[in-house]
């Protein structure tokens, strides 16, 4: 059963159509990869789904009910949360406090702290629980971003380029976290630029170009798709 259905969603900024009539659905327990060239509208799409931007048209159905027009905090309460492409930290909160804030969505104070400690261990930030974002590496900040999402106990997480800027080796830790969570029943939609990562992580992929969906399928199908090669990869060979 589809946990999320995006139906003909559009968004214009002045004369520019950032997202145009995009439709896709996400099955419960899968990892859906969303790829596309820079400026294709991927982040806008995430903002439309998570309530940060209202769409000009179309519908977003989460767990059988439309969530269009609801504020982000209410969508988060229903079980859909997002991370941000440019890491958004709570400047002077420790890792533990930041993740506790997220856990407070569904727990009272003490239980939220316990939940936060568990999630921080789970993503491998246990030894840095009392540090502030200023002293964290980019990789750790991204793990913190994932931890905040997970601590709200969502059913669906939208991850916006959590691997960007990391070396291939550095992506292994967050990837393992995501796979473990998926095995525990969580659903993910990931926007990613690091090709080998998204190819190996995603069960299915959607390709966006100039605000429109140009292809959908398994990673193998996507690699073989002519339109995708044109729109996204240009003349370059995929396996470079």
């Amino acid at each position: 059963m589809a946990i999320l259905e995006v139906q003909n969603v559009s968004r214009r900024f002045g004369g520019l159509t950032a997202v145009s009539n995009v439709s896709f659905s996400v099955e419960k327990g899968e990892i859906l990869g969303v790829i596309g060239p820079n400026g294709a509208g991927k982040t806008t799409l995430f903002s439309l789904i998570s309530g940060f931007l209202p769409p000009n048209g179309g519908d977003v159905v989460f767990k059988g009910q439309s969530i269009v027009g609801q504020p982000p905090h209410r969508i988060a309460k229903r079980g859909l949360t997002r991370s941000f492409q440019v890491v958004q930290v709570f400047t002077d909160m420790t890792v533990l406090d930041a993740v506790t804030t997220a856990a407070l969505l569904n727990h009272p104070m003490r239980a939220a702290i316990a939940k936060a400690e568990k999630v921080i261990d789970q993503v491998g930030l246990g030894h840095k629980a009392l540090e502030t974002p200023a002293s964290l590496s980019l990789q750790d900040k991204k793990l913190l971003e994932v931890a905040k999402c997970v601590a709200t106990e969502p059913e669906l997480i939208l991850l916006d380029e959590v691997m960007a800027g990391l070396t291939l080796a550095e992506t292994q830790a967050p990837l393992k976290v995501i796979r473990d969570l998926r095995d525990a029943g969580m659903t993910f939609v990931m926007v990613e630029h690091v090709m080998p990562v998204i190819m190996s992580a995603a069960d299915r992929m959607v390709v966006i170009s100039f605000g429109q969906k140009v292809a959908e399928g398994s990673p193998a199908e996507i690699v073989a798709d002519e339109k995708v090669r044109e729109a996204y990869f240009g003349e370059e060979d995929l396996h470079d």
Partner: peptide, 12 residues
Amino acid sequence: RGNEGAAQAVGV
């Protein structure tokens, strides 16, 4: 105070 958007994203 730290980040309004990120706060909303975790349900605040």
